[in-house]
Structures are given as C-alpha cells and as structure tokens.
Design a protein around this nucleic acid. Structure first.
Lengths: 194, 194
DNA sequence: TCGCGCTAAATGAATAAGCATTCATCCGGT
DNA sequence: ACCGGATGAATGCTTATTCATTTAGCGCGA
C-alpha cells in the first residue's frame, strides 16, 4: 500500500466524520474506521487530531479558491465575474456538502489557531470580490460611494448564508442557478452606478 | 444569597467563558471560578454543561429578538424597518460582544441538538425580514420578482458577516451607523421596484 | 437577647469514564 | 534476514458529575 494513498484516504474519511459529528465529538477511532486503517496509522501521517482538521482546510479549500480565481479571471465584465463567483460558490456547496459543512461549522470555532487560520483564508477568498468591485468602480460601472470592504462582505455573507441553509437541510430548497442569479442580481443592482 | 442571583451569575460567567474558550474547551471549573461559586453549585442550577449553553441562548437571544420585533413594528415604512433592523443587529453585536461571539461560533456547531435549536431560533429572527419584504411588495415598493425567502437570507447573511468581522477583530473597523446604512441601502436599491 | 435545632444551599474532593496518543509487536515485500 | 510501514491494546491524562460534609439563615422558646 503506497503511503500517499493513506494520506488521501484519511483526509477523505476525516471530512465525512467531521461533517457528521463535528470536530470535538469526532473520535480518532471513527476516522480510522472510516478510512479502514488502524488508529495508530493516523499518527504516521498527521501529528495530532487538530492537524488533520488543518490539513483538510489547507488541501481542500486551497484547491477551491484557486479554481474560483481562475474562473473569475476568464470572465470579461465585472458583472459576469460577480455572477460566476456566486454560481461557483453555491455549486461547490452543493457538490461537496461535507466539506461545505466543515467550513460552515468547524472553521468558526472559538479556538485560537482556527481563528487565525480563518482570518487568512477568508480574506484571500473574499478579496476576490473586493477586487472585482474596484475594477467595476474604475470602469464607472459601480457606484463610487460603495465601500469595497463592506460590499465584499455583504455579498459573501449573502452567499454564505444560503450555503448554511443547504448544509442544514436534507435537500436544497432552491435551484442553484436561480439562487446565484437572484443574489448577484440584487447585489449588482444595489451597487450599480446608474 | 438568593438563588436567583446565582442563576444569573452563572449565566453571565458562562457567556464570558464560552466566548473566550469555546464551548468544548470551556471547563466547568472555569465557569465556576468566573462566577465565584463552587463547581458543584452549578449543578444545582443546571442539569449539565450543555444545559448551560442552551440557557444562554434561550434567555439572552430571546430578549434580543423580542426587542428587535418591537423596534421594527414602531417604524412606518418598509424601508425604515429594514434600516432599523440592520442598525439594531449591528449595535447588539457591538454592545454585547461576548454574546455575539457565542452566537457566531457556538450556535453553529455540528451537534444535533444545536442544529435543531438553531433552525428554530434563526428562522424566527430571519422571518422578521421576510415579513417586511412581503409588506413592501404588497405596497409596490419592492420588486415582485424578488423571492422573500432568498432576500431575507441575503440581507441577514450580509449583516451576520459584518458581525463576524467585529467578533474576530479587536476593534470595530467600521462605524456602526455607517455600516448599517451602507448595507441596508445596497439592499433596498437592489430590491427596489423602480 | 440569646442560643438551639432545623433546613436548604453551597462546597470541593473523589469518582469514573472517555479518549488522544504511544509503542512493543507484527507483517509483507524484497 | 531485513526493514519500513501498519497495527491496536495499553497508558495516562483530562474533566464532567456526584455526594458526603459544611455552612448560613431563620424561627422559636426561654
């Protein structure tokens, strides 16, 4: 059995277990069982329980942010960029529910280390939005009196809240495309310069 | 010492300790020390650790929602109602940072009971918004194609995200009134019917 | 006014259970 | 035969909860 296999297997098992039980209630033995390895094996690949959580964030969220940036860059107008951002955000939550659940729940713990981590990773993501807004303002498309620092959070918060709804419900109550469009529309009209 | 005193004292101590350490890392002995009572005394007033958390939610959040409803009812126009809602939401977070922190962090755990509780309590709060939106639509002030169920979450999410920023930072980086106005403005323009 | 039970409230040391982590041992491939 | 990876039972620490004991307030009789 190649070692890279195990690392991957454990991460994947951890995502499921953390999503289901939450970080604190999750047992190392649960993760081991889900990954079909011995409890001790986990400590060959991770330093401790916390390290597993951080690895989940690093590896999985990192990928997602990179993908989002790339997609946004491919669009021409700020409006389109905003729309694609919303769509990508909501699609991700739908397609990767366990991960979305962990981001929703575990990344918001009061734990010192998580707090620091969250600041960094959320900033990077949310700044994609403020950059779009600034571009739009330079082109005269968005109002000048809108503060990108507030607007980025309003938009992200709106999407994040929709995600929370899905994470808590058994079934998505709204259509992804439709919701993405509604929210980005509302936002775009709200910051439009005309 | 009257017993009602102790209940209150323990709740207040718990708010502080939970905010600082998080529910799982908080020790009963921490709360006892902060409340200046013996560990065992806590069990005269609460069934278990979890019960303390639930009591914090019930007693503190309940008050807040009632206040918000009252304030909103006093306003005449849907626009003013939206504005006052935003202001009240953000003010509360600023004035009661520990409680805001607990709502932000602990009310979003993966724990079964908390999940259920959250659904109920968030719904009650967020439905204040959708009611305002429906009123506005009936009066022709807000666009008909806006879905109250989505819009309420977008607006709440925006406010919630601003709160998260404050909870994570040592100092409020923006002025409360200004932020409330920016966000409600953006939202009101976004759903305006003209 | 004093002191003597009586009761409810408070205490905190002891208990007992839970669980992350370790490590002596065991493969399986070369 | 050797060795790096894998195992999982044993360890030891952490902490919620309990409960035998103490304390404080109060009424009442002398």
């Amino acid at each position: 059995m190649k070692s890279s296999d195990k690392h991957e297997k454990i991460i994947r098992a951890a995502v499921k277990v953390f999503a289901k039980k939450g970080f604190f209630s999750a047992r190392i033995s649960d993760i081991a069982k889900a990954a079909k390895v011995a409890d001790g094996t986990i400590y060959l690949y991770f330093n401790n329980k916390f390290d597993i959580l951080i690895s989940v964030f690093d590896e999985e969220i990192g990928k997602f942010i990179a993908q989002t940036k790339k997609l946004v860059d491919q669009e021409e107008t700020p409006q389109k960029k905003i729309e694609i951002f919303a769509l990508k955000h909501l699609s991700m939550a739908k397609e990767n529910k366990s991960l979305a659940e962990i981001i929703q729940m575990e990344l918001r713990q009061s734990h010192k280390l998580i707090k620091e981590y969250r600041k960094t990773i959320f900033s990077e993501y949310v700044d994609i939005i403020s950059n779009i807004i600034r571009q739009g303002q330079e082109k005269g498309i968005f109002r000048e009196d809108v503060k990108p620092g507030i607007a980025k959070r309003a938009f992200f918060g709106a999407l994040d809240e929709m995600t929370r709804l899905w994470v808590l419900s058994p079934k998505p109550p709204y259509d992804i495309e439709d919701t993405a469009k509604q929210i980005s529309n509302m936002f775009l009209i709200g910051i439009n310069s005309r």
